[in-house]
Amino acid sequence: MFKQVLYTQWKWSRAELMFCVVGAFIVPTLILRVGYEVVDGYSITNVLGVVGFAGMFFGSLSLFTAFALAWRPYIVDMSLRHVGPLSLPVPWPEFVRLRFLAGATLVLLPTFAVWIGGVIATTTSAIPLTLHAYPGGVALRFLTATLVAYAAGFMLQYVAGKHAVRVAVISFFVVLLLALAASMLGFENVIGKVWNVITTWPGPFSIFNARWMLIDV
């Protein structure tokens, strides 16, 4: 069963996945190459700046991968009114678990590309004496961050159903308005606190709040 669910997930998300894989493979090397040319490669601060820029790419790629994997299966099933999954002889939670695991398994592909791409980028760049290369570390962080974001997106999609996009967009604007109103009226920023809770350790999205550095101190 898992193999077949994995296959369907692959078929739906393969274009986005291949985009992520190719991006993860090539972009870090490109950023380092071009970055070293543009900034003074002999300034370690500049080198760290370029590597930090590449780190932003990894964070964005992680979110994109998570989004691509989480969104597609539910949209496809929803367009078919979920008749397929519901008429199969497996309990619904079991089916959702299979879908979830299939997406989570496919995260390994771009993760592997991030690792290989990182190794190529760092071995072909001059690393100053006081700095070190961490392609494995970045790949592990990418894997973990993508899993968390994928799981959050997957949950939003399966809990909010066909209203997921509406729920996400409305929530975003409501939060924005409340934050703005709270700060203008001088109230203690509750939304800011909530945001802090989810983006600082051990909040789920604190995984993104880190140094995504291929080359670091």
Partner: peptide, 9 residues
């Protein structure tokens, strides 16, 4: 079912 429920791809 009444309508096609199979994955188009």
């Amino acid at each position: 079912p009444e309508r096609l429920h199979l994955y188009p791809q």
